[in-house]
Design a protein around this nucleic acid. Sequence first.
DNA 1: GCCGCTCTGTACGGTTTCATACGATGGCCG
DNA 2: CGGCCATCGTATGAAACCGTACAGAGCGGC
Lengths: 253, 253
Amino acid sequence: MVQPDQSSLRNQLLRALAPEDFALVGPYLEPVALPKGKVLIEPNQPIEYVYFAESGVASVVALNSDHRPVEIAIVGWEGLVGPSIVLGVDRTPHQSFFQMEGGGYRIATPHLIRALEASRTLHDLLLRYIYVVTVQTAATAMSNGDSVLSERLARWLLMCHDRVDGNELALTHEFLSLMLAVRRPGVTEAIHLLEGTGMIRARRSHITILDRERLEETAGDSYGVPEAEYERLIPNPEVSGGSHSRRDPREIE
Amino acid sequence: MVQPDQSSLRNQLLRALAPEDFALVGPYLEPVALPKGKVLIEPNQPIEYVYFAESGVASVVALNSDHRPVEIAIVGWEGLVGPSIVLGVDRTPHQSFFQMEGGGYRIATPHLIRALEASRTLHDLLLRYIYVVTVQTAATAMSNGDSVLSERLARWLLMCHDRVDGNELALTHEFLSLMLAVRRPGVTEAIHLLEGTGMIRARRSHITILDRERLEETAGDSYGVPEAEYERLIPNPEVSGGSHSRRDPREIE
DNA sequence: GCCGCTCTGTACGGTTTCATACGATGGCCG
DNA sequence: CGGCCATCGTATGAAACCGTACAGAGCGGC
């Protein structure tokens, strides 16, 4: 197993680890390809691996009575997939799958648990991330109950944009309608609304972010609170040569 | 400070603690009255106390852009108020307040933190509870996005019923409309719907649960998943003489 | 017993979203 | 380059919910 070099990683949690904490997990990290649609965690099944994405985006969904998924959280290179392990819980009723292709590392659950037991600072860092996820899920609950579709869509696009290189998002209306738990033509309309004011450009299976700032205005308070909590609580190590920080200014187009 | 006797407590978390873990927190528990409307945690302010309710019900809410609260979780004698402390975070953007009068204990944050550092089993138990809260919040997100008002109302009444003695809930339509983030006349209509089929009886400022089973059917999958996770993960010590377990059969009227 | 306040019932038009259906379009593959 | 399938645009009527407004009903204080 080739241990990755901590400073060359993009995953912000792994990067934020103290070197001695990274030494506890580094040897057990296995690189994995994370293609679109790959299911990382099955509902109510033991979680065998926890995933640290380097690129791409994962969705955590709850399944409703019609077995339709409803998104409750989104994870990219800022986080990990399989948070319940950090809380000492071996399985969850939710499903996690990759929605935008990428790659990353996984660690077998027993190794992670041993590392968590060995280092309180490691555990503490990951718990602070778990806290941020709870705030994100709360924001999802608020957004779902309180916002019109175009706002919820704006929020979702922003969260996706935060976790991707560049301004191109590979997304279909159908997929968005699943994530936002609305009907597909509704998404089409909401996209036209945002497109009409020039915030985004929509092409077949692709959405381009054109004006992030106005998207944030559109999303209102449903976007921003979890992101600020992340910044407050997860240390942001200096970015090494030309790499990507979540808050880097982005070249538009 | 009179240390309460663990076996005489109703709070399920305190009861579930191993005696040696209870010894770490017991000496610092201060009894508190928890009247309706009392704010336990202010958004973005340092959390000074964590609360263990013995009776009554607390709401955790996020504040939207209009400063209107939207409920994201509900806590009673099964849990604690101030979960972010357990995750090592000193404040949160959410607000917690008491919505149905009761009482309980509070512990000053530094004492709890010291106890969490001293005992991993204590920390682990409380983390498992935090996990259940995340599942509850996820269910709220799903319910908000996916369900009609009467279903959401049924879910909310059930969660409240779980945390109260008897079948009487002291609730106004106005308050429910805040919690569910809908307009007040909508609540009136939804209540009539449930009342028309005999699941509840509504009187001024009071709702009586008449048929819990059919309420659960009405709520569908939005109710039950977090509750099952609680049962799975939090040990349920034997109930001492005539006390109350969450799952006791209830005398209906 | 009356006043006044809170709470509940009801009404109205308007907006958003629903469910469903079907035609158009883009782009991949043979 | 032509066909096919995923994707997207659009239509239509129904339902849920919104914001607002106002009248009636319960209940405590005096």
